[in-house]
Design a protein around this nucleic acid. Structure first.
Lengths: 172, 172
DNA sequence: TTGCGAGTTGCAAAAGAATCGCTTCTAGGC
DNA sequence: GCCTAGAAGCGATTCTTTTGCAACTCGCAA
């Protein structure tokens, strides 16, 4: 939105003006993974979505001409293992994926009716993050390793009530 | 262990000496659900387990002579909807079920290697509970209804390291 | 005690998500 | 430009959970 953040600024160094996709690709390379056409496309779709997205939706977003859904599965597994994406869970056990370019953990509220995901407000998220980090430290102190967690909130969203008549999840 | 807590105390009233299974059955009836043989068996198994248990394990615990696994699925869904059981989630999307006879939310640490579940210490659980409740209130204030949450911690447990050579989850 | 009916169960089949095997392809170091 | 380990494509499979439908039974009432 602001001129100074645009790409291709004539004077800017290489580092400053990298697009999110470039950053993600750098992380891939850093982890020793190859930068392939499908992976770039998937990352671009993930970044464009800007919110937790299902593998199926992601695959759909790529267009039928693009890669196999199995590839999306495998990529998400790979990306998750290097921390490039974060996983969010739905009540039915399926999961959504969200790009992670270094920002702190995000917490979500998922609408029970539409599966639409909203982010928790900053204050709540911070309080929660504090509690969770404390617990994870306690666990490490007890001898646990590779500690991680899942936190999801669910509810019928007020927005969801309006959309109740809609057949599917609104796609934008 | 202590004499005064035993059942069948000659002087005790009917209410006091109910077994957990009786309490669970009462909750069933209260919710308008029928008390059937399979349900009682499932509840007994769940109570005996005393920890989050998979549907498959639960079905196995009942013995081959007992009810169909589909019935276990349906019962758990019914029990969960009336709050008689609580659900815990594994990273693979499957879930475990735990009896809920009225105690406050429990939080767990699941071993990444064995899927063995341990309970969080009381202090951590309380801190977490406070944060979570606060967030749920905030959500309700924003218009969300039927608010709920999932919280799970994962890690390689120190106990798990020892059991690493074991083929399956230790069953006791 | 007997009868009735809604709620439950059993069984078989289906649906769906995720994984696996294997061949072919390609990114990227030499 | 060549080579090879890693990645993608495609088909088939596994595993968990759900659904449909007929048969059964709990529990209320006569």
């Amino acid at each position: 939105m602001i001129a100074s953040t645009q790409t291709n600024h004539p004077i800017a160094g290489v580092k400053k003006d990298q697009s999110p996709v470039d950053v993600a690709c750098y992380k891939l390379k850093e982890a020793g993974l190859r930068i392939t056409q499908p992976r770039v496309a998937i990352l671009a779709a993930l970044i464009k979505a800007g919110r937790p997205t299902s593998i199926d939706a992601l695959h759909g977003e790529l267009g039928a001409n693009s890669c196999d859904i199995v590839t999306v599965y495998r990529c998400m597994a790979a990306f998750e293992s290097i921390g490039l994406v974060r996983r969010a869970f739905l009540i039915n056990g399926t999961s959504l994926y969200e790009i992670n370019l270094g920002d702190p953990n995000r917490y979500h509220v998922v609408c029970k009716q539409t599966n639409k995901v909203e982010e928790l407000d900053a204050d709540s998220a911070n309080e929660l993050r504090k509690a969770v980090q404390h617990i994870e430290e306690t666990l490490r102190a007890k001898g646990y390793s590779e500690v991680g967690h899942i936190v999801e909130f669910f509810g019928k969203s007020p927005a969801g009530h309006r959309a109740q008549a809609d057949v599917a999840v609104p796609s934008a």
